[in-house]
Nucleic acid binder design. Sequence first.
DNA 1: ACCCAGGTGGCCC
DNA 2: GGGCCACATGGG
Length: 217
Amino acid sequence: MNLTCLYEMMDKAFDVENWWPSESPFEIMIGAILTQQTSWESVDRTLRTMRREGVLSPSSMASMDGARLEDIIRPCGFYRQKAERVQSLARYIVERYGGSPSPLLEKEVEEARRELLSLKGVGKETADSILLFAGHRPVFVAASYVSRVLERTGVFSSRDYDEIQRFVESSLPGPPEHLARLYALFVQLAKTYCKSSPLCHQCPLREYCPFPRQTRK
DNA sequence: ACCCAGGTGGCCC
DNA sequence: GGGCCACATGGG
């Protein structure tokens, strides 16, 4: 069992087209922060409210009332720090780039990543999600879901973010779409089958999983 | 009444 | 450089 084989198996089992829906790169950046430790359903609700209220752009979000932003984000949890962080991100884009995230996302990958990581509320996983899904850059997101599946299938055992990222990026070269698709498949698989023991036994990868009864990370 | 979710930053040693 | 902890709501 190697990564390519795993990729093909998951690809056969799941449909992850339009896995990270959005109308703009900025929306992906905001969604990436909101979805930290939060289900996508809650994030989706908040993003729809933002769109409806017309605050899903750097300039409008930068200047809106903080308490109102907190209210909109509340369903996502950690709403105070998330409100502060997304607004400071919006202001950063307005002040530094005149309101468009494109110049940042189009910088050389290493530089863009460093810049994203310097923002409060943007760690490795969030930065890489933004680079991959908003910037279409060839960067893999080595989320905890990923290490869980890699470990359980015996493909690669490590908890170290950078190590997993290097492993995947070097094992699966090619266009960024593959890395995005692979990441989506990992999350989809873990979400669907790794949550509970009964589901685990129906996993399409159960024959390859060395820990068939393990249900938690 | 638990446990978990498409993590991060701050503090401690 | 790793091990805890707070952050917080919503759903199973």
